[in-house]
């Protein structure tokens, strides 16, 4: 009597395992179907993309990834000189997204969401690596941005003195200023978004950018008369040739 009970239990267990295996196969199949289906649809609205990802559509995340990976990589390289660490952190950010899908909130600004996540992750990793130095990495990292080379000023026909002054002015920018300017001009972020990334209020982040602009305007006013010619060369170099 008892051995048959044992066999029955074993049978139930095997059935359970079959269900588990079947379920995982089914998951792969639905993923494949949505992949082929989704390639014909291209919703421009980020909110819809994000919603679809939250609803379990993994293919949407690959679209999000392709849209943002270069911006993330660029931003990461400005914060951290170790490019492999940047890549690892990007990888981790997306892995966390997939794993915590159920706990994520809705957002209509995926770009800001990802930039914030990457910065947080990078700073945490750098803090771990610099644990001995006892200086908190947050707000103390150097922003590794490179501005146009002096040869470019040469091409513009600026005087030697002006070139030197411009170069000097750019060198004097603080790291926070550099980051704000970078987010503003390179990434096209609004001041509200910049203030969230820099942990500042709206006015301060705007002031950071504003001061840099003022300084450059001051220097450039000396050569105002030549400016149209210069700009023509700067923005349409092929036409100039």
């Amino acid at each position: 009597m008892f051995p048959t009970d044992v066999l029955q239990m074993a049978f139930v267990c095997i059935m359970l395992m079959h269900i588990l295996i079947f379920k995982s196969y089914k998951f792969e199949i639905t993923e494949l179907i949505t992949k082929t289906m989704f390639s014909q649809v291209s919703p421009s609205d980020e909110r819809i993309l994000w919603k679809r990802f939250l609803d379990g559509d993994d293919h949407v995340l690959s679209i999000i990834y392709m849209q943002h990976v270069n911006k993330l990589y660029d931003y990461g390289c400005k914060i951290c000189p170790d490019k492999n660490l940047v890549k690892d952190c990007i990888q981790e950010v997306f892995c966390v997204l997939i794993r915590n899908r159920k706990n994520l909130s809705e957002t209509d600004n995926i770009r800001l969401y990802l930039l914030k996540a990457l910065k947080r992750k990078l700073i945490r990793e750098m803090t771990i690596q610099n644990a001995s130095s006892k200086i908190s990495v947050e707000n103390n990292f150097s922003f590794l941005i490179e501005y146009p080379e002096r040869t470019l000023f040469d091409d513009m026909g600026f005087s030697e003195a002006l070139q030197e002054k411009l170069h000097e002015a750019l060198l004097q920018l603080t790291d926070r200023q550099k980051e704000a300017i970078y987010l503003r001009f390179n990434k096209g972020l609004g001041y509200q978004e910049i203030s969230e990334l820099l942990n500042l209020n709206y006015q301060s982040s705007r002031a950071l950018v504003h001061r840099a602009i003022e300084k450059l305007r001051e220097l450039l006013s000396e050569v105002k008369e030549n400016i149209f010619q210069l700009l023509f060369m700067l923005f349409h170099p092929s036409d100039a040739l």
């Binding site: 990834y65 270069n70 990589y73 490179e146 501005y147 146009p148 750019l170 001009f185 450059l216 700009l231």
Partner: peptide
């Protein structure tokens, strides 16, 4: 035009990853 010049001066060099590299990273994820 002045704004464009200042923008040009403050526009930093960008790092790019390259398509094959980004695809490889995605596959890793």
């Amino acid at each position: 035009e002045e704004a464009r010049l200042i923008f040009r001066l403050l526009y930093g060099r960008e790092e790019t990853m390259g398509v094959s590299e980004s695809v490889a990273l995605w596959q890793k994820i």
